[in-house]
Amino acid sequence: MSPGPSAVLLAAVGAAALLAHRTISVAVIAAILLGLCLTAPRRRRWPYLLGALISAGAVFVITPFVETIGSHPIWNGPIVPVLGSIDITREEIAAATYQALRLASVTLAFAAYALLVDQDGLLASTRFGRRSALAVALGTRLLPTLERDASGMIEALRGRGVAVSGVRGHARLLSPLLAGSLERGVNLAEAMEARGFGRQGATRAPRPPWTVLDWLAVAAAPLLVAVGAVWL
């Protein structure tokens, strides 16, 4: 499938997960997207899956403490100023599961987009807003680049006999990683300008036309969103 229709379809699946009312429906969507992500190479997929797991897990843990719904308590906690009584009810757990799965679906849809969609092809097929599309494409590459830089940094430190361990040890890498990515960004911007980016009258290399499958995917996207909003 061409990158454009693939991206549209993934966006529709993410939107359907956000609009769906039933937890089981959202869970099925999340499972499908997870399966899709698992087809990507192991080395590339783990940061995305870890990100999805951590963000969804955080929502699942925090939601019961900030929601005050339900009448079937599972655990009665202390009364905290401002927040009130820290009870956890069965309904809050259900709500937390639903919210966590929705977030997981959206992050997994993005992960599938970043891992499986041909970013170059998507950028090349963009008929308008090419600068924005380029920014998104380059932004999508940021995570794997940071992961590679972090690995290189840890390896370089090990080579100097400096062990990197624990949260504090890894946290120390954040600032140099950010500085490195900024430097890389400046170098890239300079190279792009030298290659004429932003000049008036740019053209586009011819792209292969969409296939029937591509058209079907684009047609199915709004249907998916509607199904998510009405039936799921």
């Binding site: 290659r195 004429g196 980016f197 932003g198 009258g201 740019a202 053209t203 586009r204 290399a205």
Partner: peptide, 13 residues
């Protein structure tokens, strides 16, 4: 990329 930026006719790229 550079060819597109400088306006090379698509058929030549």
């Amino acid at each position: 990329f550079g060819l597109e930026n400088v306006g090379t006719p698509p058929a030549e790229i």
